[in-house]
């Protein structure tokens, strides 16, 4: 009898666990797909193709902070709830893509416009999901000769910036606030829980160049005292903490030794 109960309990336990979706491996995006975001808050409902946004082009030209703080894009696809009206009003994509803004020698094409409602080639530059659109910038051409990295975009953005192969804008006239120079906080070490894993060296310097302060604090990292928050790889992997960026856009978590850099004594 006892055995029967045990077996039944075991059976139910197994069934319960069976429905949790873990333990498998997903497809990894190709370098030019890495950082791709599909935005479909209103597109399909208005019978147009959803927007496909690849981070790599913008990330080579602008800091993360510029778009995610100054312009105010959210950190999750669809979370910003961008409407065509917002763009027409000159916010979000329309902040730069207004048909008049110029960066260097490139004049930026215009995003959504008040008009006939007919789609044209310019609309297709963003509203391109499922369409065979030839983009103006070819990824492989674009990143040619840049320092390479095996995962993510296959580009070592940190080195590319270091060697001034890219000089991202951090200020847009009329949008960004003139700020004083940033005072960089100190780097620090985090000791991992797993014995034998090298310590994590977190560099404020490397992060603030792209992000400033308010992109990460306090929304992503709420802790005010070092060592108070316990991060686990599971949390990160679910898209919390470092995982907010280091799954989809910045170099992925798979590259253990990019963070676990301190040699084990």
């Amino acid at each position: 009898m006892k055995k029967a109960i045990f077996t039944t309990a075991l059976l139910f336990a197994i069934i319960g666990i069976a429905f949790a979706q873990t333990g498998v491996k997903k497809r990894r995006p190709l370098p030019f797909e890495f950082g791709r975001v599909v935005i479909n808050n209103y597109s399909e409902a208005s019978h147009i193709a959803p927007v496909v946004f690849d981070h790599w082009l913008h990330r080579a030209k602008f800091t993360c902070r510029l778009c995610h703080v100054d312009i105010g894009f959210g950190m999750k696809a669809g979370a910003t709830d961008i409407k065509a009206r917002d763009n027409i009003n000159g916010y979000y994509c329309g902040t730069c893509h207004n048909g008049t803004r110029v960066f260097g020698d490139t004049s930026v094409f215009s995003s959504c416009k008040e008009g006939s409602g007919k789609m044209n080639a310019t609309c297709n530059r963003c509203h391109s999901l499922g369409k065979n659109v030839t983009r103006k910038y070819d990824f492989r051409e674009f990143v040619k000769g840049w320092p390479r990295e095996r995962l993510g975009n296959g580009v070592d953005w940190e080195k590319a910036e270091d060697r001034e192969l890219i000089i991202p804008y951090d200020y847009i006239e009329g949008v960004s606030i003139k700020r004083e120079k940033l005072i960089v906080q100190q780097d620090f070490k985090i000791a991992p829980k797993v014995e034998g894993m090298p310590d994590i060296i977190f560099s404020h310097d490397k992060h603030t160049f792209w992000n400033g302060c308010e992109l990460c604090h306090p929304e992503i990292f709420t802790g005010i005292k070092k060592g108070l928050t316990k991060y686990s790889m599971v949390d990160l992997y679910e898209g919390k903490y470092c995982g907010v960026c280091h799954i989809n856009v910045a170099f992925p978590l798979l590259d253990c030794q990019r963070c676990h850099t301190e040699k084990v004594q």
Binding site: N89, Y91, K181, C213
Partner: peptide, 28 residues
């Protein structure tokens, strides 16, 4: 018109620029 765009026209926007200009060195 080109320079000011939709941002920074009203008083409250001025206030915004001045109050949020210190984020880079909030720690000091």
């Amino acid at each position: 018109g080109n320079f000011s765009s939709v941002y920074a026209q009203d008083d409250w926007k001025q206030e915004y620029s001045s109050v949020c200009a210190k984020t880079q060195n909030a720690m000091i």
